[in-house]
């Protein structure tokens, strides 16, 4: 059985642009993966088609069991926001190709560290 996880330093999920996101990833897989990659990305969700932007990726060793520390610098944007038609969220994802194992940790990126609420249009 596959076990993959992402642990953020101090369990912190809210960041401002320019700050560092750090933590540890661990994986124990039932088979040798073809690749293991940690991705920092944003994605949209809502009424329209989904948009995704991978900002940075770290290629990790393709072994069956390991752990690794990581660090990313949060880019200037886009900020995490939510309205009624669209939300933009950030996440870290550990993807083990060939072993069908994925772990995801959602993040919030904005100057205040809180999601920007667009509210409803009048």
């Amino acid at each position: 059985m596959n076990q993959v996880s992402i642990s953020l330093s101090h369990g912190r999920q809210n960041y401002s642009p320019g700050e560092r996101i750090s933590g540890t990833v661990q994986w124990t897989l039932s088979e040798i993966p073809s690749s293991v990659e940690l991705r920092l990305f944003w994605y949209t969700e809502g009424k329209g088609d989904q948009d995704v932007g991978i900002v940075e990726r770290k290629v990790l060793s393709s072994v069956q069991q390991s752990s690794s520390e990581f660090e990313f610098v949060v880019p200037d944007g886009p900020y995490s926001f939510s309205g009624t038609l669209i939300s933009l969220s950030w996440a870290l994802e550990l993807v083990c190709e060939g072993a069908d194992a994925v772990a995801r940790e959602t993040l919030v990126v904005s100057p205040s560290g809180a999601e920007v609420n667009l509210g409803a249009a009048d």
Partner: peptide, 15 residues
């Protein structure tokens, strides 16, 4: 309701 919490987002429909 925030878009990402809406149970009828396109992503959820595509799933």
């Amino acid at each position: 309701m925030r878009a990402k919490d809406n149970p009828f987002t396109v992503t959820k429909m595509h799933s």
